[in-house]
């Protein structure tokens, strides 16, 4: 039943994300009507490289949550909601509470990002002309795996920060990573931003295995830290 609680807690956030996807699709239609002629691959990919990291970040920041602390349906909360005590009074270990909540959020993130990349693919004829469905599928997988780092960052921050600071903290980390990637500060093997932009499967038709493996490892470390904090924290 923790799944049921998690779904009730996040469903409005998920609905917001789908609304945001509709908004982006609407804007994409508007931009397409204004364009004409043969699509320029660099220009098409450039717009993808702007949209996708932004969508990853928004999805991760909205769905990455604390696990034990109660979240309101949408608004950022400050302090612990009293019902957190009700959660802790249930005969369930904290590890399971956090694990279930994080899993729900991750599945929702995967769903939102999958829908996002599918909608972009089916709505953008220009994209279909400059890429293949296989490359786009690989790109979607890279987005999901690399996006997990931001999701688990938000989950970790949510285990000891209020919602508003969790969101800001995730954005600051993402901003730093984008900045470091743009300035080529990060080694290619750990540059998860490059893995969904300039080094993505859309460009070289090769999976960015190094950054993806790094993202999985980093996500695991972040989640392990979340479990330790949740176990030790006093509510």
């Amino acid at each position: 039943m923790l799944w049921y609680k998690g779904w009730l807690e996040t469903r409005i956030r998920v609905a917001f994300l789908f609304g945001f996807i509709c908004l982006i699709v609407g804007m994409q239609n508007w931009a397409r009507h204004g364009a004409s002629g043969v699509p320029n691959k660099a220009a098409v990919l450039s717009s993808i490289y702007t949209l996708v990291p932004m969508q990853i970040l928004i999805t991760a920041a909205i769905l990455g949550a604390a696990g034990i602390a109660t979240q309101p349906s949408f608004a950022a909360s400050k302090g612990l909601h009293g019902s957190t005590l009700y959660t802790l009074s249930l005969p369930v270990k904290r590890t399971r509470l956090v694990l279930t909540r994080a899993a729900i959020g991750w599945v929702e993130m995967a769903l939102a990002l999958t829908v996002f990349v599918c909608v972009i693919w089916y709505r953008s004829s220009a994209l279909r002309m400059v890429s293949t469905s296989a490359a786009w599928g690989h790109f979607a997988l890279a987005v999901l795996i690399c996006g997990s780092t931001f999701y688990f960052t938000a989950v970790l921050l949510g285990s000891f920060l209020d919602d508003q600071w969790r969101t800001w903290g995730t954005m600051m980390l993402a901003g730093f990573m984008v900045w470091a990637s743009v300035h080529h500060w990060l080694p290619a093997a750990v540059d998860i931003i490059a893995a969904v932009t300039r080094s993505s499967p859309l460009v070289g038709n090769a999976m960015p295995w190094g950054p993806m493996a790094f993202s999985v490892a980093l996500s695991a470390v972040l989640f392990a830290a979340t479990l330790v904090i949740s176990e030790r924290r006093e509510y």
Binding site: M1, E9, S83, L85
Partner: peptide, 30 residues
């Protein structure tokens, strides 16, 4: 905790649930 019934001091429950939903949520744990 499986053998304890608990009423918290502030009487706060999940703000996104109805009476029926919180009963349905709590029941399977006990």
């Amino acid at each position: 905790r499986r053998r304890i019934g608990f009423v918290t001091e502030d009487k706060e429950l999940y703000p996104y649930m109805t009476v029926e939903q919180i009963i349905r949520f709590t029941r399977p744990f006990f």
